[in-house]
Design a binder for these strands. Structure first.
Length: 157
DNA sequence: GCCAACGTTGGC
DNA sequence: GCCAACGTTGGC
């Protein structure tokens, strides 16, 4: 088993960008812009093409893992940080010295049966999962291989 | 809508 | 370097 992260979880509020939005995007691809947290950014920088991600709906009813995606382009500067009009504008990030990065992802599958946060909490094997940690707000986080495999088994019923 | 948890900012 | 104030996240 590789010591490097290969699995991740990314959060999105479905009212902002949902798994269905990803499914309807050209090529079922999107750039994952707008991340403005250093730890989340660093995790994105560690992503490799082919890494898989769980797509999680936060601020949703219910909050749940709703799909699987994969990394199709590794970290590169997030242009929304340079745009004064943009909601995620950050004057600290300059084109000649970008502070914030993004990756490109592609939808792999939409889960026919989403796995709710409640359901995940019922799994003893997921006790240490970052998503389930009290107060956890990281929007990009690593998922352990064992956690990934366990969740896939739940997905398959 | 509430509010706990968290990250960032800025005064000192 | 400390820490209060503030803004945001996200479950409920």
């Amino acid at each position: 088993m590789s010591p490097n992260h290969t699995y991740w979880l990314i959060k999105s509020e479905p009212s902002a960008f949902s798994i269905d939005d990803l499914g309807k995007a050209p090529g079922r691809k999107t750039c994952w812009d707008g991340v403005r947290n250093y730890q989340a950014r660093n995790y994105m920088r560690a992503m490799k093409v082919g890494d898989r991600l769980f797509f999680y709906h936060s601020n949703a009813d219910p909050p749940a893992i709703v799909g699987i995606a994969e990394v199709v382009r590794e970290a590169y500067p997030d242009p929304t940080a340079f745009d004064k009009q943009h909601r995620h504008y950050d004057p600290k990030s300059k084109p000649e010295k970008p502070l914030w990065d993004m990756v490109d992802i592609r939808l792999v599958k939409i889960l026919t049966r989403p796995l709710s946060l409640d359901r995940l909490r019922q799994e003893p094997g997921l006790k240490g999962m970052e998503l389930l940690r009290k107060g956890s707000r990281l929007s990009v986080q690593p998922v352990r291989t064992a956690e990934w495999a366990l969740i896939l088994r739940l997905v398959e019923g």
